[in-house]
């Protein structure tokens, strides 16, 4: 899932100040937590109330799109709703915001969220964990299914460094040292020879941004 975090209301108000009629657009797509109609209505109300606190009279309306990264979906769902809209507050990830800009270039579009990582959800602990940095060169076969590019802050490929303590990372003692996890897993599954192997430096060229592929 793409994990996003709400921007502080103060910041959102900062860029909505010049406008009056705001359309708050949620996204029912893949963000975690989902930022659908409920979130759109919440922000629609909060922006209005916040505006009143600052002597601004916003008129907000809430709506949602199945996937804001799909330009066709955006166009068909939102075109009937954008008449007289001065600005759009998008609650999608960064991809959704930019897609809306392409579909409605004449309307100012603003992000209501910060997109933070690709991660998994642990409902019991109410936590989201970053798991993948989309490097384009997956080595999970060599590391027992644990990604060191993501889970080691230094991105070491011949880890661990000498900073681990009680199996935790020197950068954040609340987090596991990815390489200790990899070592233990490789040992338990009889793959220590893979652990011993020398891994060459990462090829950054393949992930030069912005990337693009052909998709039929």
């Amino acid at each position: 899932m793409i994990v996003t975090k709400e921007k502080p209301l103060e910041e959102i108000l900062g860029f909505l100040t010049p406008y009056k009629k705001i359309l708050v657009v949620g996204c029912d797509g893949c963000t975690t937590p989902p930022r659908g109609l409920r979130e759109a209505k919440t922000y629609s109300t909060l922006v209005e109330m916040s505006g009143k606190l600052n002597n601004k009279n916003f008129e907000c309306k809430a709506t949602t799109v199945a996937k804001q990264c799909d330009n066709h979906d955006c166009a068909t769902t939102l075109t009937p709703q954008i008449e007289n809209v001065d600005a759009i507050l998008s609650l999608a990830c960064g991809v959704g915001v930019q897609t809306l800009v392409e579909v409605f270039p004449e309307i100012p579009i603003y992000p209501g969220q910060d997109t933070i990582f690709l991660g998994s959800q642990d409902r019991d602990n109410a936590n989201m964990y970053e798991k993948c940095i989309s490097c384009g060169d997956c080595i999970l076969d060599e590391t027992g299914g644990i990604c060191p590019r993501t889970r080691c802050p230094k991105g070491l490929l011949n880890g661990p460094c000498a900073g681990h303590m009680d199996g935790k990372c020197e950068v954040d003692r609340e987090k596991d040292c990815a390489w200790v996890l990899i070592y233990r897993r490789m040992k338990d599954t009889g793959q220590l020879d893979k652990f011993r192997a020398f891994r060459k430096p990462r090829n950054y060229q393949i992930s030069t941004s912005p990337q693009q592929i052909v998709w039929k």
């Binding site: 230094k154 460094c161 020197e170 430096p201």
Partner: peptide, 20 residues
């Protein structure tokens, strides 16, 4: 790691590790 020092907002490089 970069966050231990006086410039915690800087970009950490780690293009190579010590073995590399």
């Amino acid at each position: 790691y970069i966050t231990m020092g006086d410039h915690p907002e800087a970009k950490p490089v780690f293009d190579l590790d010590s073995v590399q």
